[in-house]
Design a protein around this nucleic acid. Structure first.
Length: 645
DNA sequence: TTAGGGTTAG
């Protein structure tokens, strides 16, 4: 009511020109009522605009109420500033009040202001309100449509986003680059992405950096890196976002080398990395276990030391590169920690052989009031598993639903199978698999298989291996393991059958490969490949090491050779396993105080494990080997995995 | 007034 009467009051004397525009205050134009009370001080509207500009919401609202009492209407631009102020301050109620206010009293807000309100609802995650407003709008322009399409895409409502694109085209509204870059995020399959890409080329919108960035990002998400690279290479000039898209694409698709190469190109092109660049570069360094590269990136991270995502990535890098010292330092200095920070640190401690510290940190996390999530619990159970805490593990598995509302999934059961398997409780592990609410997958069975191998239970191992092969028919390691178990039991017919089925399926064992970073360079050692320039020197040095180790009791264990070779050849084959060459090179090249960090593509074999334990003791070195599943910290003749992997 | 790129798991 107040607003209706207010409309008739005079505002013509206000110095609107000082606001930088001359839009009328009401769509009906200013009205004058000479007999009304004296006009308010001219500063009121200016003050209001200034408060909005400064995002000082309490003062802006106070000025707004004062103006309302005096019957003054601001213009659409000023109202939009107030709405933006509400968005910036997260002030939902004030935002809704503005909407009510501008809709009352016959004031007909312009599409421009309604779009701002629409955007406000989207930002406040009030999609239903946004839709209701959209339906009420007398005129919807490309911005109105794009605001909703973008909201649907962000919420994963892909069909709805695409449906709106079609509706808008039917209504004769032309999409712009904002629309395309939004709708590209809603491609639920590669076919739709390719269709949209052709459409974008037809209308000539592929030159926009945001559209290109969205195309690169989406092709990367579908694993189509060549397409992503084609889009990238077609561009003459690229902005930082586009560089970040391609670097992120490579990093997320386990192409760390290419990601780091692109990062170098980006710097050569004159761009300074931002938080997103550094996060992706850290991810690439993490995947490649390049601690020194990660440390160099850390220097740049200091500029963005309050960025949570970046700090989490840094934390993960230190954990996965085997530097708990670095991880602890980052974790303790973080000004803000979320569930990902805690989960990363808990899993990192557990993976690096500090299970009890991981459990303590979990208690600290709960004490801090942070709610654990699905992934946190995987880390906690992993820690229980590595510390052999069967009772604790079972307790957490049974209570996680009740305590934290988390349904145990495959990953949690996997940790438990590992835990029971480690403890030699193979029957209980099988019972647990049979009791799982979700279907066991190849990983579950492979975990049981590992336990059977350690505890030398051939029958169950054969059963588990058959389950793995059923679910993952291309897993060469399992075929070979199964074949060796049969061979050890003199079941030659089965051995022949397995070898035949491997031939038929074209399955070959991936050669073992180990990487080590020396002087900021990555050195790769591949089984049977002598291309390293110092290979002869390294082999000579390795032979000396083996001789010295044998003199103190090391006996090569040929059981781990997965080939049909005579004993002597078997030993020779073992001697040049890629990790042994990498370790020898590390000892030759790195100063004594440096940890020798090796990354492997395959699981470490038992012989290399024994060899490394003894070597770490003999040379008084710390050696870390990260295989695809576990971390092995060798120190003083022992390994953090407790000889179970 | 509408659009991008980044973090945790066995």
């Amino acid at each position: 009511m107040r607003a209706v009467s207010a409309r008739s009051k005079c505002i013509a004397s206000f110095p609107l020109s000082r606001l930088g525009h001359s839009t009328p205050i009401s769509p009906h134009g200013p009205t004058t009522r000479p007999s009304s009370p004296p006009p308010p001080p001219p500063s009121l509207l200016d003050d209001f605009a200034e408060h909005c500009r400064r995002r000082d919401l309490p003062r802006a609202m106070k000025a707004m109420h004062a103006m309302q009492r005096l019957g003054i209407w601001a213009d659409a631009i000023t109202y939009s500033e107030l709405v933006k102020c509400c968005v910036a301050r997260g002030a939902v109620e004030e935002g809704k009040w503005v909407r009510k206010h501008v809709f009352s009293g016959g004031y007909q807000p312009k599409t421009f202001l309604l779009n701002v309100l629409l955007h406000m609802y989207v930002r406040f995650n009030l999609l239903r309100d946004a839709e209701a407003l959209f339906d009420e709008m007398p005129d919807r322009n490309v911005v109105s449509w794009t605001t909703l399409i973008s909201a649907y895409a962000n919420k994963g409502m892909n069909d709805r986003a695409l449906e709106f694109l079609i509706l808008m085209l039917r209504e004769g509204v032309c999409p712009n680059m904002y629309t395309y870059s939004s709708v590209l995020r809603a491609c639920a399959d590669l076919g739709v992405l390719r269709q949209l890409h052709s459409g974008i080329i037809k209308v000539g919108m592929e030159c926009d950096d945001f559209v290109r960035s969205a195309l690169i990002d989406n092709y990367s998400k579908w694993g189509e890196l060549q397409d992503a690279l084609d889009v990238f290479n077609e561009m003459v000039t690229k902005d930082l976002g586009v560089w970040n898209s391609i670097i992120g694409g490579f990093a997320q698709n386990s192409n760390g080398d290419e990601a780091l190469e692109m990062y170098k190109c980006m710097k050569r092109a004159g761009f300074a990395p931002d938080q997103a660049t550094l996060t992706s570069v850290l991810r690439a360094s993490t995947a490649l276990a390049l601690l020194e590269v990660g440390r160099q990136v850390h220097v740049h991270v200091l500029k963005f030391d309050r960025d949570l995502i970046l700090n989490n990535a840094l934390l993960d890098m230190y954990c996965k590169c085997g530097s708990l010292e670095g991880a602890n330092s980052v974790f303790s200095r973080m000004v803000e920690r979320d569930v990902i920070s805690w989960s990363t640190m808990i899993a990192g401690l557990a993976q690096n052989g500090c299970s009890l510290e991981a459990m303590r940190l979990f208690e600290q996390m709960k004490h801090s009031g942070m709610e654990p999530n699905y992934i946190t619990m995987v880390g906690v159970l992993f820690a229980c598993s590595h510390a052999g805490l069967v009772e604790d593990g079972l307790h957490y598995l049974q209570s996680m639903k009740r305590s934290f509302g988390i349904d145990p999934g495959r990953e949690h059961y996997g940790c438990m199978v590992d835990l029971l398997g480690r403890a030699g409780k193979l029957d209980e592990a099988v019972k647990l698999i049979n009791k799982m609410e979700c279907e066991p997958d190849a990983v579950t069975w492979r975990t049981l298989l590992s336990a059977c191998r350690v505890h030398r239970n051939s029958d169950l191992a054969i059963y588990a291996a058959k389950q793995v092969v059923k679910l993952d028919p291309d897993d060469a390691g399992t075929y070979i393991l199964l074949s060796n178990i049969y061979a050890n039991n003199q079941r030659w017919e089965e051995v022949t059958e397995i070898r035949r089925s491997m031939r038929v399926r074209g399955i070959t064992k991936e050669p073992g490969c180990s990487w080590i970073e020396v002087n900021k360079k990555i050195h790769a050692f591949i089984l049977g490949d002598d291309s390293h320039p110092q290979v002869d020197e390294i082999k000579r040095y390795l032979n000396q090491i083996v001789q010295r180790l044998m003199s103190i009791g090391y006996v090569p264990d040929t059981n781990f050779v997965l080939q049909d070779l005579e004993d002597e050849q078997r030993e020779a084959s073992l001697q040049y396993h890629s990790e042994k060459l990498a370790i020898a090179y590390g000892i030759m090249s790195l100063p004594r105080e440096k940890t020798i960090m090796i990354r492997k593509n395959l699981r470490i074999c038992g012989d290399c494990h024994t060899f490394t334990k003894l070597l770490a003791k003999m040379e008084q070195r710390i050696i870390v080997i990260r295989d695809p599943v576990r971390y092995h910290h060798f120190r003083d003749g022992a390994c953090s995995c407790g000889d179970f992997w």
